[in-house]
């Protein structure tokens, strides 16, 4: 499945797109973890590939990145694991990382490897639309979309450029701040969603600060997809072993999926 197909198939209902750091709970167990989330009702994934200085991430995902790097994770291995996740689940995957590992690998080579892995999209947290042109061009050559971000602070002039370039979706930053669990009570996501919708039909996926069934369901009513990251990652970091980690994320994904479908 591609993102485009998934958005079409589910129609009115928003996609549930869990974020998970690859390399967790251990590199050999990552595919099992994603499969458990697929079985529990995930519609696609954001596959995190670690960077040592992740400016958009709060303490939980920072810790996950540190653990993943310590286990030997690299951008290349992360893309290999993404291919395995695709194979095991047939769900669309967006790979998420930061600019510098991509520059080191080479933008064209990254695009080629991401395309080869079957990634449908790249999410690059420190790449605003202003700097995105060379990355978008290379990725497009390989059939991979480059997601663009819209934040509550994004001006109208910027939003026009964001919705025009976003592929396959706009990542709407639902709350101010870096990734982390929040109560989801901010009204900013609704304003942002309305501003995106008034400009374009491009799918909107909301993420950042969405952590439980209630906030996921609320975000789902505003958007075409919902990303939940920190709450899931924390369960894996807290789990004693692989089986417990899989159970813990499956249980939360199940609850999220149920809340978003009702």
């Amino acid at each position: 499945m591609t993102f485009r197909e998934s958005f079409e198939v589910t129609g009115e209902r928003a996609l549930l797109l869990p974020y998970m750091m690859c390399g967790l709970p251990d590199p050999a167990g990552t595919v099992e973890l994603f499969s458990a989330m697929a079985d529990a009702g995930a519609d696609g994934f954001e596959v995190g590939i670690p960077y040592a200085d992740p400016l958009m991430d709060g303490p939980v995902i920072q810790e996950a990145g540190t653990r993943s790097l310590a286990s030997g994770m690299t951008l290349r291995r992360g893309l290999e694991i993404t291919a395995l996740i695709r194979e095991a689940t047939n769900l669309p995957c967006a790979v998420m990382t930061y600019v510098n590992p991509i520059l080191t690998m080479g933008v064209a080579e990254f695009a080629h490897a991401a395309g080869g892995a079957g990634a449908g999209a790249a999410i690059i947290a420190d790449l605003p639309v202003d700097e995105s042109e060379p990355f978008a061009a290379a990725l497009e050559n390989e059939g991979v979309g480059l997601v663009q971000f819209a934040a509550p602070t994004t001006t109208d002039a910027r939003l026009d450029r964001v919705v025009e370039r976003a592929d396959p979706f706009v990542y709407g930053i639902a709350e101010m701040g870096v990734t982390g669990e929040r109560d989801g009570s901010s009204s900013r996501a609704a304003d942002l969603a309305a501003r995106v919708r008034s400009r374009s039909a491009v799918p909107l996926v909301l993420g950042v600060g969405i952590s439980g069934p209630e906030s996921a369901a609320a975000a789902g009513r505003l958007a075409d997809g919902v990303i939940v990251g920190t709450a899931l990652v924390r369960r894996v970091l807290d789990a004693a072993d692989r089986a417990t980690a899989c159970e813990a994320v499956a249980s939360l994904v199940g609850d999220l999926a149920e809340a978003m479908r009702s």
Partner: peptide, 22 residues
Amino acid sequence: ASGRFGDFGGRFAPETLMPALE
């Protein structure tokens, strides 16, 4: 306009910050 000194500089920042930088 892109904040470059020759090949260096620029603005590789999360979108949330970009309007404030402008």
